[in-house]
Design a protein around this nucleic acid. Structure first.
Lengths: 213, 213
DNA sequence: GTTAAATAGGGTGAAAACACCTTAATTTTT
DNA sequence: AAAAATTAAGGTGTTTTCACCCTATTTAAC
């Protein structure tokens, strides 16, 4: 019987190797190789023999995160099936990942049997969703249009600076802008992100991986 | 040859099982069982045959975290060797964990060979430290007395509330205190934690697991 | 049993944050 | 080429935050 090839993208080495061991123990699957981040993966994929059937992708990674990477893969390798694997239970993250084209989203506390099932289902039916994730998704449907807030480069830079002990005046200096412009950025983001104050911005930035603790 | 027994304490099931697989693949070690949190572990340890030589302990866990659990183990089972295993690179967390009695602190991105070395060294010499962690520790020595800030129950409750979009006035109402008392709590914490403003408090609370995103 | 500290609260003033509304130049869309 | 959107910035006023002062109980320590 032919083994299905899997590639693991995960920045933490030990986890990467441990998960690889697990996948190799499943009798229909084999790990082709592992990558430390999205950039690594894209480089590897340029060699045609390096293209697997399934990619197990962590969401929180440095350099090129799971969401961005999956989005690129959707366009450049549409036949590649991406399964997200993350500790992140945040609705907006899950939605972003699925919108980016992931075929499923596994939380890192699933049983290993579920991982095997997910891999098999993804090969045979093209997707797999756990009840956990489905529930989170259904709940978030009622909350309307989350997950499709588009932030500009400068706004992201601003948000990162907001997650510090600087005053807005200091942020303005650092970004070479007038304090009044910063006021505008802030007020805009309050609306866009539906938050009331700076604390809300900080929490949003951290939840969405814009600022890493 | 006698195998050395290891217990894994880790809240994420998949990781727990993956790491267990890894440890079982080392030829001097075997996994006795795994636990989902510190409380689970303490219960299990009450049965004498359940006492291993080494505990591989995650730091961030619900119910009873790695630091608290290690502290309890130091008193109740002083011969038990705890190795911390975490993604947390934060100096204060590492220091707290080592102060609590951990024999080593491994970051989750180490190679599996390092994990094996760490286990062997901990059995033979009683401790193991990677260069990464040593460097972080040495750097933090210059920063003086971090990691020994004692927070009171009410301060922790306050800190949790600070990580929200409430104003201090609203926090005061919620905690049935005068806004002026809240002022005092805040100013005290600014000094204790060496931060300048509310954002600093939020970042501290999140870094130290007081507030979970 | 006096001293120390922790706990809860008050007053005042300055700085920062927030709300809301307007404008002017540039860029993008149509 | 005209309309619309984006980016940067100013004005004004209120609320919140922060800094630094101080006081009265109640616990804990010596």
């Amino acid at each position: 019987m032919e083994l299905h090839s899997v590639v693991i993208v995960e920045d933490h080495n030990l986890l990467s190797q441990a998960i690889a061991g697990l996948v190799n123990s499943f009798n229909k699957f084999t790990v082709l190789y592992t990558c430390k981040n999205g950039k690594d993966l894209l480089t590897k994929l340029k060699t045609p023999t390096n293209i697997p059937e399934i990619i197990l992708m962590d969401v929180n990674m440095p350099i090129l995160n799971g969401i961005e990477t999956t989005e690129i893969l959707k366009n450049e390798y549409p036949n590649l099936k991406v399964l997200a694997l993350s500790v992140e239970e945040n609705e907006t993250t899950i939605i972003k990942m699925l919108k980016a084209g992931a075929k499923g989203y596994l939380l890192k506390d699933v049983e290993k049997e579920i991982l095997e099932t997910a891999l098999i289902e993804t090969i045979t039916h093209g997707y797999y969703h756990t009840k956990d994730v489905s529930n989170i998704l259904i709940n978030s449907l009622n909350e309307g249009n989350k997950g499709n807030v588009k932030l500009k480069e400068r706004e992201i830079e601003f948000l990162k600076n907001v997650c510090s002990e600087m005053t807005y005046k200091q942020i303005a200096e650092k970004m070479f802008l007038s304090p009044k412009t910063i006021d505008g950025y802030r007020d805009n983001l309050f609306q866009k992100l539906e938050v009331k104050n700076r604390i809300g911005l900080v929490l949003y930035a951290i939840k969405n991986g814009i600022f890493k603790i």
